[in-house]
């Protein structure tokens, strides 16, 4: 869907991005991860031509973006930024309606689409007539997302979309974000410097450092097959949490004890990660859950069962 080929960008004498290549598949959620100044935001902004590369090409759906009108290109790509970038002099409704207006949608179509979105993003109806400064940070970020999604563009670029939020708000918006049906149809490129966020939301992660991509791969690949010491050390600080996040019930299925399940237990499928299963366990009433495999098998698990299965799984795979 998005093809980045040999792209380089200089700012004066500094090389911001050096000869990077990257293919992003349709409906993939790719995370550009790295510390500040590694070139991840520059890479993102070159995709909608907010920054023009000095060499190399970028194409979307096979068309070279350099040959397209930059304004028309940008209208077809959703863009969400850290500081929301909402227009302080526009109401929320006007803010969301910017791109439909540029595309000359009729107001009926725009309004029904806005209604639909604010419901999906659980924004209160009343906020439409309000101005951005009257909303909370979390609400503003949702409006930013609504503005990017309103014309249902196939590609969504997100620059640290949850970066300005406090931890509690961030966790809840991330959860909503993951659950949002609308986003599952989209090709998303997201920039972040939070390792856990990258692991939580990304199908694949490109870890960048000093203008180059050090490694691109699934969270599991980065964690268990790091390309070099940089990747390993970058993830070391939060290794246990990350392992909990990349390992699913399916992975540890064979290490879980068999057992009949009581029917009143909460049931989850085996796509759940260890991390989210443990989080769910904390909130269930008798601290047990029923998990169901893709083949229809059922097992009852509790905290001890999960952690020991995980530890057995880790030991048996450590040679990889």
């Amino acid at each position: 869907m998005i093809e980045i080929k040999g792209v380089t960008k200089y700012f004066g004498n500094n090389t911001a991005v050096q000869d990077i290549s990257l293919n992003i598949a349709e409906r993939e959620n790719l995370i550009l991860l790295g510390t500040s100044g590694c070139g991840k935001t520059t890479t993102l902004k070159m995709i909608n031509r907010l920054i023009e590369p000095d060499s190399g090409t970028i194409s979307i759906s096979g068309k070279n973006i350099a040959e397209q009108n930059s304004e028309l290109l940008r209208r077809s790509i959703g863009y969400v930024m850290q500081n929301t970038g909402l227009f302080p002099h526009y109401t929320i409704e006007q803010n969301i309606a910017v791109v439909p207006k540029l595309l000359k949608w009729d107001s009926k179509k725009t309004n029904s689409r806005i209604e639909e979105l604010i419901e999906k993003l659980s924004l209160p109806q009343i906020c439409l007539k309000q101005f951005p400064h009257q909303l909370s940070g979390g609400q503003q970020q949702r409006v930013g997302l609504a503005r990017a999604l309103v014309t249902d563009p196939p590609v969504l670029l997100m620059d640290e979309p949850f970066g300005a939020l406090d931890n509690v708000t961030r966790a809840s918006i991330q959860a909503e974000f993951k659950a949002l049906e609308e986003l599952k149809r989209k090709t998303i490129v997201m920039v972040t410097h939070y390792v856990q966020e990258a692991f939580e939301l990304g199908d694949r992660i490109s870890l960048m450092d000093k203008g180059i991509i050090v490694q691109t791969g699934t969270p599991k690949e980065l964690l268990y097959n790091p390309a070099n010491d940089f990747v390993k050390e970058f993830l070391d600080g939060q290794r246990l949490a990350l392992e909990f996040k990349v390992t699913t019930i399916k992975d540890v299925w064979s290490y879980l004890p068999n057992g009949n399940a009581a029917s009143d237990q909460e049931k989850i499928n085996d796509e759940y990660s260890i991390w989210s299963t443990l989080e769910l366990l904390k909130s269930t009433k008798n601290k047990t859950l029923r998990v169901e495999s893709i083949h229809g098998e059922c097992k009852t698990v509790d905290f001890t069962a999960i952690t020991s299965a995980f530890s057995n799984y880790q030991n048996n795979n450590s040679h990889e």
């Binding site: 907010l50 304004e71 209208r75 077809s76 863009y79 930024m81 500081n83 970038g85 302080p88 910017v98």
Partner: peptide
Amino acid sequence: DNHVTEAAKALGMSKWH
């Protein structure tokens, strides 16, 4: 605010707009 003008540009507004 730079973020606001950048957002305007990113949404596909022309310079005049």
